[in-house]
Amino acid sequence: MHLLAYLPLLFPALAAVAARPLAEHLEPRLATWLLTASTVALAAFSTAALGVLAVAGLVRLPLVAWVGHWSATTVRAGDPVSTAEAALSCLLLATAVYAALRLLWRRVRALVAAGFEAACLPGIDELVVLEDPAPEAYALPGLPGRVVVSTGMLDALDEADREAMLAHERGHLAAHHYAFVAATHLAAAANPLLRPAATAVAYTVERWADEHAAAVCGDRRQVARAVGKAALASRHTPDRGRLSAAALGLLGMRRDPVRRAGPVPRRVAALLKPRPPRYPLLPLGACAAVVGASGLCAFAAAHDLHVVLKLAGAG
């Protein structure tokens, strides 16, 4: 049981390594579902494993053994978890549960508040234009959700770009992307090793909305252009960086600058490439294997604890 209970705590490290490549190479909708499901499952199993370790510690306390009518001595003999490990597990479990509940509470509150804002914004149309020179566009979830665009953003884009931008934001609302982001944030709160996976999902939902916009507009390049223009307009530096683009090449950073770039250039680069394949079997299988192994370990650890308790005379 010893090792089995620790493995689910460490599997998220694999997710941390794999999340970014999966997010880059898979079709974004699939990537979002896959990463979200895996992240939530891994968080659940790692929390369950912590729970098993914590319980394994608690059941050797004489008081608990007396209440539960089993022999603390037999438990101690049959169970290799040390007191220090058990105490640490209790602490980690308490931290994980506290962090997850806190995030859940704040996120639900924020969603309710966003719903109120969405209902209170002027007009009755889905689209809300706000008088604001700063370029800004976002989807506000609610019943119904609203797409908020500043006049600054409208000014920065031409008609084709606006169509792409609106389709992108509507894609966010239609597919409830905030829910995927919230689920992975919750998982990452429970196990910080899952943070890279949560970051990857925040990226794949943007990619998903980009692909949605590309499908609506029928032109991937148009969406790439809209994203690029909006991003450059949002940055208040008017300098035309032609010279330093050449310098990049001289410094040898040109080999693959996109890989180390932020999300916006990576989105644009992905849109300028052909659409990724829909069902690549290898990554799907690998994710299923890791999540399955994690679940199996957590289950086996719980089962072992159960057997030990049974041996010790618990009902």
């Binding site: 996120r107 566009a137 506000l140 934001e169 905030y178 982001v181 991003a231 949002s234 916006v264 250039p265």
Partner: peptide, 17 residues
Amino acid sequence: AVLSRFISDLSADDEQL
């Protein structure tokens, strides 16, 4: 965190790229 911004922040390198 609950809203989906069209554009996230851009670094100077991102801008050039």
